[in-house]
């Protein structure tokens, strides 16, 4: 039987997917004291086809730990899954670590999904890190060609930044997952 069809998470997704109504099961602070690897603050802004910030989106980040591992058996001081709601300027932020390479899965990256009003299906993308020598051989980045840069976070002072453009010039290269 075919998959259940998708519907938008709507404008009030915070009720069910954040800690709006109780303790958070999945939060934006993924890294705890003692987490192994390079600490990363990942930020970005979500922008619509008019260049306006998307203030009601929610982003999920799913990534391996600094040694490329997933639970069970991964770093207990890291939550591999994070969620961040965009603020009134369309900005998100995750406190995490730089993901390690997963054997057979290309250059180190995290998987991201965006949920929002006006998205009938959540959008998939990936977050790679600028300057990683493995990026050159990554199958997805190679297939993306010039669009690859929309999936690569860049250092911006003390943080890493990956802006997400839903539509138009420099539109993010979303994935057909």
């Amino acid at each position: 039987m075919r998959e259940t069809p998708s519907q938008t998470a709507g404008p009030y997704l915070h009720i069910g997917m954040t800690d709006a109504a109780g303790p958070a099961l999945i939060g934006s602070r993924m890294r705890r004291d003692g987490a192994r690897g390079e600490a990363v603050t990942l930020v970005g802004r979500v922008i619509d086809g008019d260049g306006a910030p998307v203030t009601d989106a929610l982003i999920e980040l799913w990534q391996p730990d600094a040694e490329g591992r997933f639970p069970p058996g991964s770093d207990p001081s890291l939550s591999n899954l994070g969620r961040a709601a965009c603020d009134d300027e369309g900005c998100y932020m995750f406190e995490t670590v730089r993901p390690g390479a997963v054997p057979g899965a290309g250059a180190p990256h995290g998987a991201m999904m965006i949920y929002a009003r006006g998205m009938n299906r959540a959008l998939h993308l990936r977050c790679y890190f600028e300057g990683d020598p493995a990026n050159a051989g990554d199958p997805l980045l190679r297939a993306a060609g010039a669009r690859a840069r929309t999936l690569i976070a860049r250092r911006d002072g003390a943080v890493w930044r990956l802006d997400i453009r839903l539509q138009g010039a420099n539109e993010t290269a979303f994935l057909d997952v």
């Binding site: 086809g49 990534q63 391996p64 009003r117 539109e171 994935l175």
Partner: peptide, 20 residues
């Protein structure tokens, strides 16, 4: 609400292995 939030470029095909 879909009009300004729908991507216009074709999505990339996912490689056979990935963290997804």
């Amino acid at each position: 609400s879909t009009r300004l939030r729908a991507p216009t470029a074709p999505p990339l095909t996912l490689p056979s292995a990935g963290v997804e």
